[in-house]
Design a protein around this nucleic acid. Structure first.
Lengths: 152, 152
DNA sequence: AGGTGATAAATGCAATTGCATCAATCTTGA
DNA sequence: TCAAGATTGATGCAATTGCATTTATCACCT
């Protein structure tokens, strides 16, 4: 009985490209932010989720679900965001363990400034490299790799 | 004169999927290695390059080119690999600054054991989710995002 | 009500990463 | 030949991350 030694070569190639390209693009986007004197992408992710959540804010565990950060990582990231005045921590009435995180006006402004740079990076790094149809095809293929898979 | 405020929505969606899916898959592959008591993927990348390079080995700066690690990161990673006996550092004759890194027998064995787990992760995480044609399409799209772009 | 296990968030400590800089060698050009 | 600059690799120090554990509260079950 032969044991399968290795995945099919198409899978290996797609995996290798995915790992390499995603890392390269991520680092380029981070570098653009840094060059503009702005915080890292992790901050953007949180500010973005909080901006979408609006005035009622989000609980830290909800942010963790949305952003895939580790719990201890989120805890410290929120502490830094708070120290910079970009978010507020509010006691939540019905759960004494928890808190609600709300973005501040300063946080919204920071998000806006970050998006000016980040959005430009996205436009340059993927928007100019693929057509709209190709971008949709890429998003669809990636969606099938997600767990749970996306159907669009 | 209107300033373009944001990249096209297809670009944003493809970007978001790329960042999220690649991170999720990377973490799942790392977790599988950790559960088997094996080192992180970074170690595999270096051992893989060195195994392909054969007996003459590679210079650290060549490894940096191939793996996209930062220089200080590679320096320390190689020190750890050497401390574990997985690679050897050799003086190089024609350049007194440099060294050549060669994989050891123990390093080859470690790479083999890591591949048994890593390859299985790749098979499960992408091999079973997409057809061969879809995997090739994905690799091709990602190749166009690379710099320099891949043409296949 | 009271005990038990689950959940929310924080934290001490070790390992890793990022940044800046250093030391050593090499290359080039006057 | 030798000074100036570039390249190779390492390292001190601060910031971040990972891991394990802790603290506090909640939910459930008897």
């Amino acid at each position: 009985m032969i044991e399968k030694a290795t995945p099919p070569p198409e899978a290996i190639k797609a995996w290798a490209r995915l790992m390499r390209v995603s890392r390269q693009l991520f680092e380029q986007a981070e570098e653009a932010l840094k060059e503009s004197g702005l915080p890292a992408l992790a901050w953007y992710d949180v500010l973005h989720e909080l901006a979408e959540a609006g005035e009622e804010g989000l609980r830290p565990f909800q942010l963790i679900e949305r952003t895939l950060f580790a719990q201890y990582n989120m805890s410290r990231l929120l502490a830094r965001l708070q120290a910079d005045g970009l978010v507020e921590k509010l006691k939540v009435a019905d759960d004494g363990r928890g808190q609600t995180i709300r973005i501040s006006a300063k946080g919204r402004e920071m998000r806006r400034r970050m998006w000016a740079v980040y959005g430009r990076s996205i436009a340059e790094l993927v928007g100019t490299k693929l057509t709209a149809e190709e971008l949709e095809a890429l998003a669809s293929l990636l969606g099938q790799l997600r767990f749970p898979p996306a159907d669009d």
